[in-house]
Amino acid sequence: MLILECPYCGVKAEETELHAGGEAHLKRFGPGSTDGEFHDYLFMRENPKGVHFERWRHANGCGKWFHAARCTMTLEVFGTYSAQTFEPPQEIRDAITAKRPGWTWRDLK
């Protein structure tokens, strides 16, 4: 069972209170972009074994979206953070580096 702490209400919510929202930190390519960019935005997703960043919504709770960093192999959660950010904050990156030295995810390391 995955347990994530909602950064807004501080509740340690288990999976059934949450709704998964897919990969985090996607940049939208809409009108005016090339076909290649639009294709990549629509279809190309990371599927890592290890460190991953995801969006989650506290659906049966405060209803807010937030981000989570976790390991897809061990289900270890490195931390959750606000949705109002384009990339993981430094403390989340430090927490991952402490547990998984040398991790990479897209162009983050």
């Binding site: 209400c9 509740v11 059934t16 209170e17 049966n60 709770g61 405060c62 209803g63």
Partner: peptide
């Protein structure tokens, strides 16, 4: 005060 779910409903 807690918002959550009760079985299948909010």
């Amino acid at each position: 005060f807690r918002r959550s779910r009760m079985a299948q409903v909010a």
